[in-house]
C-alpha cells in the first residue's frame, strides 16, 4: 500500500498537518465551493443589487447616488406608521409566543409522560402545512360566517357577526400560530441541557417551586428564549402572507409596502429603501443578540 498509515488518519482527524497538504486543501475547497457560490449568487448578489438601488437617484438611467429615498421613507408619516406597526407587531408576537411556548417546551424537556413523543410530533407538524392553508383555516374560524361567530350566535350572545378578521390582533393570532413551533424547539433544546439537580438543590435548600423557577431554571434557560425570540422577531417583520390574508388590506406592514412599491407602483428606489430599513431592523436584532450572548457567557 502506497499511503503511509499515519497520514490519512491525520487528514481525517483534522489535526494540524506539519505542512500545508494541498490535496486536502483542494478537496475542502471543492466541498465548500458549490455552497459558497449558491449563496453568493442567490443571496449576496440580490442583496447588493437592492442596496445599490436604494441609493440611486432614479431608475432606469441613474445619474448619481443619493440618500433622497431614505429621507423620503423615514420622513413620510405613511411609511413611518407602517414601520411602527411592523415592529410593534413583531414585538407583540415575540412576547406572546415566548409566554405561550415556554410551558410546552418545559413539558417536552421534563415530562415523563408516555405521550411526550406524540406531543413533540404535534408541535412540529404544523410547520409542514402550507401557510396558505393555515390562513384559509383562520378565515373559516374568524370570518363573519365562521366558527366563532356561529358559536357566539348559537349561544345567543350576539345578534350580528363580530368583525374578527381585518384587525391587528387577527394578524397577531395568525403569526403566533405559525411561530410557536420555532419558539418551543429553541427553548426545549436549552431546557433539555440544564441539569435538574440545580433546581433540586435550590428546592432542598428551602426555596419554594416558584422561587426555584424564577431564580434558577428561568435564568438558565434565557438563552433558549433569546434565540427563539430572534427567529420569531425576524420572521415576523418580514412576513407577507399572514398580514395580507388575515388583515385583508386593513393591516399594512412593511412587507406589503415593499411589494406595493416594487410591483404595483414600480418605484424601485423607494421600495429598495423600505427593504433596506427592514433588513437593518433584522441586523440590529442579530447584533443585539450577539452582544447579549457575549455578556451572558462571560457571567
Amino acid at each position: 500500500m502506497s499511503t503511509p498509515a499515519g497520514a490519512p488518519t491525520r487528514a481525517l482527524d483534522g489535526l494540524p498537518p506539519r505542512r500545508i497538504d494541498y490535496g486536502r486543501l483542494f478537496s475542502l475547497l471543492m466541498l465548500l465551493a458549490p455552497a459558497a457560490l449558491l449563496l453568493a449568487v442567490g443571496l449576496l448578489w440580490p442583496f447588493l443589487t437592492m442596496l445599490r438601488m436604494s441609493f440611486l437617484d432614479r431608475y432606469p438611467d441613474p445619474s448619481a447616488l443619493t440618500l433622497e429615498y431614505y429621507t423620503l421613507v423615514l420622513g413620510d408619516p405613511y411609511f413611518l406608521r407602517i414601520i411602527g406597526r411592523t415592529f410593534s407587531l413583531a414585538l407583540v408576537v415575540t412576547v406572546i409566543t415566548a409566554v405561550l411556548a415556554y410551558p410546552v417546551a418545559w413539558f417536552l424537556a421534563r415530562s415523563r409522560s408516555r405521550y411526550k413523543h406524540l406531543v413533540f410530533l404535534a408541535v412540529i407538524s404544523p410547520l409542514m402545512v402550507s401557510i396558505i392553508v393555515r390562513s384559509i383555516g383562520w378565515t373559516i374560524v374568524l370570518g363573519n360566517e365562521g366558527l366563532i361567530n356561529a358559536l357566539l350566535h348559537g349561544l345567543g350572545l350576539i345578534d350580528g357577526p363580530l368583525q374578527l378578521m381585518q384587525s391587528f390582533w387577527s394578524v397577531v393570532l395568525g403569526m403566533v400560530h405559525i411561530l410557536i413551533p420555532f419558539m418551543v424547539l429553541s427553548i426545549a433544546s436549552v431546557l433539555g441541557k440544564i441539569d435538574p439537580s440545580y433546581a433540586e438543590a435550590a428546592y432542598v435548600m428551602g426555596a419554594n417551586p416558584v422561587r426555584t423557577f424564577l431564580k434558577v431554571t428561568l435564568p438558565l434557560s434565557v438563552q433558549g428564549i433569546a434565540s427563539g425570540s430572534v427567529i420569531v422577531f425576524c420572521l415576523t417583520i418580514g412576513a407577507y402572507v399572514t398580514p395580507v390574508m388575515l388583515g385583508r388590506g386593513k393591516v399594512l406592514v412593511m412587507a406589503m409596502g415593499i411589494f406595493e412599491q416594487m410591483v404595483v407602483t414600480v418605484d424601485w428606489p423607494t421600495g429598495a429603501a423600505v427593504a433596506m430599513v427592514l433588513t437593518m431592523g433584522t441586523m440590529l436584532v442579530l447584533i443585539a443578540y450577539g452582544l447579549f450572548l457575549r455578556r451572558y457567557s462571560r457571567r
Binding site: 449563496l39 443571496l43 430572534v230 427567529i231 417583520i237 411589494f259 429598495a272 427592514l278
Partner: peptide, 12 residues
C-alpha cells in the same frame, strides 16, 4: 437564508 427577510430576498 433561514432568517433573511424573504420579502427582501424576493424583491432583490
Amino acid at each position: 437564508p433561514l432568517i433573511f427577510p424573504a420579502i427582501v430576498l424576493g424583491a432583490g
